[in-house]
C-alpha cells in the first residue's frame, strides 16, 4: 500500500500523449477513416454524398447525445426507437386533428403532444428504474413494446399523412445547402457536450456511473438524477421522432425498428463505457460518424445489405475489444 503507484512515475509528456489518446483516440480514427474513404471510395467526397451522409447521421446523432448520458450513468435505454415512431405518429395525428380549429398553430399542438409522449415514456422509465429499482434493460424493453403498440393503436397501423405542409420545412428545408436536421444535431452535440463537461448535472452523471453508492454518499440525489436523465432522453427521442415525421411528411408506426441498437452501438464504438462512468461528447460524435461513414461507403460500393449487417457487427466487436484492451493498459 505504501509504494507509489506505477503511473505516478510516468514522465509528464507520456501521460499527456496518453490523455490525448484516451480522449481523442476515436476522433483520430474518425479522421483517418474519413480521409481513407474520401480517397478510395468513389463519389464519397462529393457535395451530394456529404449532404446525404450528414442527414443520415443526424437522427442517430441527436439521440446519441442523451443515450451517452444514460450509458455514462450506468443505465440503458431500449425504448428510444419506439418513442420516435410513437411520437411521430402522435405528432401527425394531432396536427391533422387540430388543423380545422387552430389553422397554422396546429403544428405547435402536434409538437406539444409528440414531446408529451417522450416525456411520459421517460417519466415511466425513470420512475421504474430509479425508484422501483427495476433493471433498466427489462424496463425499457417493456416500455419499448408499449410505446410501439400505442403508436400502432393510434393510427390503426397505417401511416398518417400530414396535412400541414409548413411542418415539412423542419425536416426537408436547408440553409446554405445544409439540411436543417443537421443544424439541430450539431446544436445538440454542443449543448450536451457543455452539459456533460461544465454542469453539475453532467459531472454527477459520470459520478453515478462511476460508483453509484459513493455518489449517493457524496450527497448526490441519485434516484432524482436518474429520473431527470430518462425524461431528457425521452424528450430527445420525441424530438428525433418529430424531425423524422417531418422528413417523411407522415407519421409512420413501423419506423426506426432497431434504431436503439444503432445508437447504443455508435456510443459504444466511440468509447462510452457500457458499465458507466466514462463518457465524452467526442466519443458520441466520433462513434456516430464512424458508423455513418462505414454504412455510407458500403452503400456507395454497392455492398449488399445482408453483408452490411455482418460488417457493422464485426466493427462493433472490434471496437469494444479494442476499448477493453485500452482500459487495461
Amino acid at each position: 500500500m505504501s509504494s507509489q503507484p506505477e503511473s505516478t512515475a510516468m514522465p509528464k509528456g507520456n501521460s499527456f500523449a496518453r490523455t490525448m489518446w484516451s480522449d481523442f483516440g476515436m476522433v483520430i480514427v474518425l479522421i483517418i477513416l474519413f480521409i481513407f474513404c474520401a480517397v478510395f471510395v468513389p463519389r464519397f467526397f462529393s457535395p451530394i454524398n456529404m449532404r446525404a451522409l450528414a442527414l443520415a447521421v443526424s437522427m442517430t446523432g441527436m439521440v446519441a447525445c442523451t443515450m451517452m448520458l444514460c450509458l455514462a450513468s450506468g443505465n440503458f435505454d431500449m425504448s428510444c426507437g419506439a418513442v420516435i415512431a410513437c411520437s411521430g405518429v402522435v405528432c401527425a395525428v394531432m396536427i391533422n386533428k387540430a388543423f380545422p380549429y387552430v389553422g397554422n398553430y396546429s403544428i405547435y399542438v402536434g409538437l406539444f403532444f409528440a414531446l408529451l409522449v417522450g416525456f411520459l415514456v421517460g417519466l415511466a422509465n425513470g420512475l421504474i428504474i430509479a425508484y422501483a429499482r427495476i433493471n433498466a434493460l427489462i424496463t425499457t424493453l417493456a416500455t419499448m413494446q408499449i410505446a410501439r403498440g400505442i403508436g400502432y393503436i393510434i393510427c390503426d397501423g397505417k401511416a398518417v399523412g400530414i396535412s400541414q405542409e409548413n411542418f415539412f420545412y423542419l425536416g426537408t428545408g436547408s440553409w446554405f445547402m445544409v439540411p436543417i436536421p443537421v443544424y439541430i444535431t450539431v446544436c445538440c452535440f454542443i449543448i450536451f457536450g457543455i452539459i456533460l463537461e461544465r454542469t453539475s448535472f453532467g459531472r454527477n452523471t459520470l459520478a453515478i456511473g462511476g460508483n453509484e453508492e459513493a455518489a449517493n454518499l457524496a450527497g448526490i440525489r441519485v434516484a432524482y438524477h436518474k429520473l431527470r436523465l430518462f425524461i431528457i432522453h425521452g424528450l430527445m427521442s420525441a424530438l428525433a421522432g418529430i424531425v423524422l415525421a417531418s422528413r417523411m411528411t407522415s407519421g409512420q408506426p413501423t419506423t426506426s425498428q432497431g434504431f436503439e441498437l444503432d445508437v447504443i452501438s455508435s456510443c459504444v464504438l466511440g468509447g462510452i463505457s457500457m458499465s458507466g462512468g466514462l463518457g465524452s461528447i467526442w466519443y458520441a460524435v466520433s462513434g456516430v460518424l464512424i458508423m455513418g461513414i462505414v454504412q455510407n461507403s458500403m452503400n456507395l460500393m454497392n455492398v449488399p445489405t445482408f453483408y452490411q449487417y455482418v460488417a457493422r457487427g464485426l466493427i462493433l466487436l472490434m471496437a469494444v475489444i479494442f476499448d477493453r484492451y485500452k482500459q487495461r493498459n
Binding site: S200, R203, N204, L206, A207, G210, N211, E213, A214, A215, L217, A218, G219, I220, G277, L278
Partner: peptide, 25 residues
C-alpha cells in the same frame, strides 16, 4: 464510509472530480 473502494471513491474519475463532487454545487 467504511468501505472506501465500494462506497467512498469513484475510482475511474480524477482526484479533482472526487474532491469536488459535493461542494461544487
Amino acid at each position: 464510509p467504511e468501505d472506501r473502494k465500494k462506497e467512498g471513491i469513484i475510482p475511474i474519475l480524477s482526484v479533482q472530480e472526487n474532491v469536488n463532487i459535493s461542494s461544487r454545487r
